[in-house]
Design a protein around this nucleic acid. Structure first.
Lengths: 339, 339
DNA sequence: CGTCCGTATGTTAGCGTTCACATCGTTTCG
DNA sequence: CGAAACGATGTGAACGCTAACATACGGACG
């Protein structure tokens, strides 16, 4: 911007003066009231155009006592899932006429999350969407909910909390049953870190499917969502010849497992089958292409915004059914050989 | 939030009444003025605490004629780079006392980008950071810059435009020289799509390094950043036995290339070396681990915010030097065999 | 033909904050 | 010891908007 060029932004009064009407008429036009005669409206519109008028949201928020803003807190912005969630919430929010404040918290310490929530509250958001499905938030939510509308994005919400989610348990079950159907009987699990709800749900889905099939649980190793941790888990699992299949709690860890298996000379999928979770865009082009469980974040974000806006408007505590994930079969899992 | 529970949020006047002072004194305390006696300040602070008072940003913005907000427009929110950029800008902004409005545009059509910018302008951002290094923005920027401060995040900015960036040319040069040093003489390039500045710069870096070495340019194929397009390019390249090295313009495409090479029976790196760009977190755990060019988004975001705030405060048009990327050597590239 | 009503528009107040200035008590110093 | 200076606090107005009410103008109706 060239220095000194900008005069003060035009206000309704300026538009009104130019159009030869009162500021209230301008307000009516801007807000689409039908109590304005056609030619008056046209004059006002022309004045708005000429001055480049833009309604001042701060003034509006002040007098209406509503910010028109929704906040989304999300962790792990370096991962595909959270980023997509953010994008889809943003898009859905725009469509619903809300401004969305995206608040990524890179490292999930209680302190930084709480600071981020404070910032959101300072911004007077009308609802907080919590895209942080970590245990440490379950207490926080209750207290937060007394201040502002809250929607958790969560597959296993505490009772009475507004939430939306994708069914992580069902997804894990899908993956595990698939491996079972392929004839595998020792299916290891590389779990997400303790404390993460999705990690817990995926682990329980794995456990549940095994139990339903009457199959003993395979070894399990806890990772931290990173491919590095998957690699380390894979190296350990590779030493156990009874393991013919691995279900990893996300695609990154699955990819680390695959590398470790390669290095140990165990072929995927001929010797060991691997299934991931998420279906990141690259999953289909790994070597071998990764069989995984797809979650679709588009409808999730839209649903979250919908629930939030309903909560704001009617105060309803609606918990829509969990969205269903989907198994995407590719080459990284195959029938158990030599069985 | 329990319906009907909330009274109106407390205002300065409420705090003032409780503390037995005027609203102006409360204002002074909240803004850290030193012209308040210690015991008065304590009384005010206590009242703030008791009422859970929060300063109303809208009212403040209205009277100060400043929103205290910075907007970041970024495309490709599904990719690692843009997401990290967003996170780092957000963090740096917070630290600098600005609210950051993150505006991801999923599909880069002119219409949606322009709508996103309008939204940012409606939010009265004091500066727009443009994390969209696409050609189609170069015209837009000029016009936008007459309205609001603009900072491009861009490795090859138009003259006179405030910008920050990572040196894409240098990164590509690094990668190509490395392959050259390894003895490769036919180095193919899988380029990013036409129109993207980073794609252009990386391609030119490849070209430049070859030229400097007096080596003929290898085949080049244009992808679209996706692993799918990398796969398709790789399949084509695999048919050309003279190609012993491939430099892909990002890690996703590199990974697609590797899969295609695998499928064609050409070993990586024994038969063909592959180098990517970005150093996404999974790159180190692919099979084989990917040699790539790392860009660090942390300092980039911080720099962008710094330039923006300086522009707001002093109107300076500063263009700091491009940040240097770094070659990360892993296993996917090796000396040319049989040479 | 005067009254009533509906439609289009204008007027006033107030949202919660900051800024500029006014006030008041207390110290300082000739 | 009185005036000046300073430090702490208060008062009033204004930012740009919307809500509520007031007004003006016309046509319908008895």
């Amino acid at each position: 911007m060239v220095r000194g060029e900008s005069k003060n932004a035009p206000s309704m009064a300026d538009v009104a003066a130019l159009a030869g009407v009162s500021h209230q008429t301008v307000s009516r036009v801007v807000n689409g009231s039908d109590a304005v005669r056609g030619d008056t409206r046209d004059r006002v519109l022309a004045a708005i155009e000429e001055l480049g008028y833009r309604r001042n949201k701060s003034a509006r928020a002040l007098v209406m006592r509503r910010s028109g803003r929704l906040g989304l807190l999300y962790s792990q912005p370096h991962l595909y899932g959270p980023s997509m969630l953010a994008a889809s919430v943003h898009q859905a929010g725009q469509k619903a006429g809300y401004d969305i404040i995206l608040s990524p918290v890179p490292h999930l310490e209680a302190a930084s999350a709480e600071r981020a929530i404070e910032a959101l509250l300072d911004d007077a958001v009308e609802a907080v969407l919590l895209g942080v499905s970590h245990q440490s938030f379950e207490d926080l939510v209750v207290q937060l909910a007394s201040t502002v509308e809250v929607v958790m994005i969560h597959s296993d919400p505490p009772a009475g909390v507004r939430s939306v989610g994708i069914d992580q348990y069902a997804g894990a079950e899908l993956a595990t049953k698939y491996l079972l159907d392929l004839g595998h009987r020792t299916i290891a699990h590389v779990a997400g870190p303790v404390g993460w709800i999705d990690a817990r749900q995926r682990r329980e889905g794995w456990l549940g499917a095994l139990q339903d099939a009457g199959v003993d649980r395979g070894p399990e190793i806890f990772g931290d969502w990173s491919s590095r941790s998957g690699y380390e888990a894979g190296a350990e699992l590779a030493r156990d010849p009874s393991v013919t299949a691995v279900f990893a709690a996300n695609d990154s860890m699955a990819l680390g497992v695959i590398r470790a298996l390669h290095e140990a000379g165990r072929r995927v999928p001929q010797d060991v089958s691997v299934v991931g979770f998420d279906d990141v865009p690259d999953a289909a082009y790994l070597w071998p292409p990764l069989t995984t469980v797809r979650q679709d974040f588009e409808p999730l974000g839209a649903l979250a915004v919908e629930v939030a806006t309903k909560a704001i408007d009617h105060g309803s505590v609606e918990v829509p059914p969990l969205l269903a994930p989907e198994l995407v079969v590719r080459d990284s899992a195959a029938p158990r050989s030599g069985g």
